[in-house]
């Protein structure tokens, strides 16, 4: 059984049972992410650690996917690969029709800038810059003119209900507001995917719910969202949950089946 067939076999919805293409061939346009047998090995002082051992994921445009897994499962490594911060040791990664797995540094930087919007656990806002300036940052590297940057950042902040906080610095904002600034920054360059890494890890449960509602709203409006988390109740906000274990996908199911499995286990 090939790896693709394995993944298809694991898929639970009819929609996902579409062949995403043969190795080396670009997937059809409705697939925003297709990985084919990606592995990632680290050389830890002579000892090779296999963080990912052949991962097959295919994500359609407008999907809302959670990637779960205990620590050491390889989910951070997978997130770095999906986010183009790293390249796989072997295998193919197609993002929005481009083969990014063999790209050089500067091309990866361009892909990160255009195709990916990052949301981090620790927000990662520049402390000395205002909300407006933080949101403008991806546009600076995209070479957008100052006037257009200003207008687009303003629009993005208004989209996350922070239109009145544009001139505040991160330390003048609450945790939830900071994360919303980060979301605005992630969205400002209209990326193919919104990639969130434990987006509620530093927030209390009320604020977490608020952020999840923002994600829900974005997903409903057609934004592809990929969220890495280790919390099942946060993962349960997504419409599809992929679970990693020991560098491999151990399950890939809809929210409903995931919740059913979860409840069955409890």
């Amino acid at each position: 059984m090939s790896l693709i067939e394995q993944q298809i076999a694991m898929s639970t919805t009819a929609e996902r049972q579409v062949v995403t293409g043969a190795p080396g061939a670009a997937p059809s346009a409705d697939w925003v992410i297709v990985t084919r047998g990606i592995t990632r090995d680290y050389d830890m002082g002579g000892e090779v650690v296999h963080a990912l051992r052949g991962v097959e994921i295919a994500v359609r445009r407008n999907e809302y996917v959670a990637i779960m897994g205990p620590s050491g499962s390889g989910k951070s490594t997978l997130m770095n690969l999906i986010g183009c911060l790293d390249t796989p040791s072997a295998g193919e990664y197609w993002l929005n029709g481009e083969l990014v797995s063999r790209m050089a540094d500067d091309e990866l930087a361009r892909v990160r800038n255009r195709e990916i919007g990052f949301v981090f656990q620790t927000f990662n806002l520049l402390p000395r810059a205002t909300a407006q300036q933080n949101v403008e940052l991806p546009l600076v590297y995209a070479g957008v003119s100052a006037a257009e940057r200003k207008a687009r950042a303003k629009e993005a902040l208004e989209r996350v209900q922070l239109g009145d906080r544009r001139d505040h610095r991160p330390n003048e904002l609450s945790g939830g507001q900071r994360q919303r600034v980060a979301i605005a920054r992630a969205l400002v360059n209209r990326p193919a995917i919104l990639l969130a890494d434990e987006p509620t890890g530093n927030l209390d449960s009320t604020t977490s719910e608020e952020i999840m509602r923002v994600f829900e709203g974005l997903a409903s409006s057609g934004q592809t969202v990929i969220m890495v988390t280790h919390e099942p109740d946060i993962a349960a906000h997504a419409r599809r949950v992929v679970v990693l274990r020991d560098g491999r996908i151990s399950s890939d199911e809809t929210r409903e089946t995931f919740l059913a499995t979860l409840n069955a286990r409890v």
Partner: peptide
């Protein structure tokens, strides 16, 4: 260093 990391994540190239 962290600022540099953020900038790179957001699309800054080496030359930037």
């Amino acid at each position: 260093t962290r600022e540099i990391g953020i900038r790179k994540a957001l699309g800054a190239r080496r030359r930037d």
